[in-house]
């Protein structure tokens, strides 16, 4: 290791005096790493639907969808968007923006759509 790296103590030591079980003992090399459950799996395993509904839990404190009509803004400029391009499905504000979105390559169109989670995902 380079001296300046050592001096900055950039690298986390593998052995810590204050630990009862060291990292290398818990996760030895060559052994398959633990597959950590993602939040989705944690929620599933927790079986929240069996919990009493009046008690607060991680799932039922989540807020519901909004009651207000959703705001439609131009995907490119952020202006108010009265129009929707039927080909690309992008929302746009005026003719100028329309000309621009028609010249956009498909990849960019998809990225703009992905911003509001509306992109076509092929699995």
């Amino acid at each position: 290791m380079e001296p300046e790296v050592v001096e900055a103590e950039l690298v986390l030591p593998t052995h810590m005096r204050f630990k009862k079980v060291q990292m290398y003992e818990k996760y030895p090399k060559g052994q398959a790493r633990v597959r950590w459950k993602h939040l989705k799996q944690i929620i599933q395993a927790e079986n929240y639907q069996n919990y009493p509904p009046d008690e607060p839990n991680y799932v039922n404190i989540e807020s519901p969808p909004s009651m207000h009509p959703s705001k439609r803004i131009c995907d490119i400029t952020g202006f108010k968007a009265p129009y929707l391009d039927p080909r690309t499905k992008l929302r746009y504000a005026n003719a100028e923006v329309f000309r621009m979105i028609r010249s956009l390559p498909n990849e960019y169109v998809q990225r703009y759509l992905a911003l509001r989670n509306a992109a076509v995902v092929l699995r």
Partner: peptide
Amino acid sequence: HPSLIGIEQLGLDE
């Protein structure tokens, strides 16, 4: 307006 990024949930005020 979380719906702007496709999250269908309430905003701060609501």
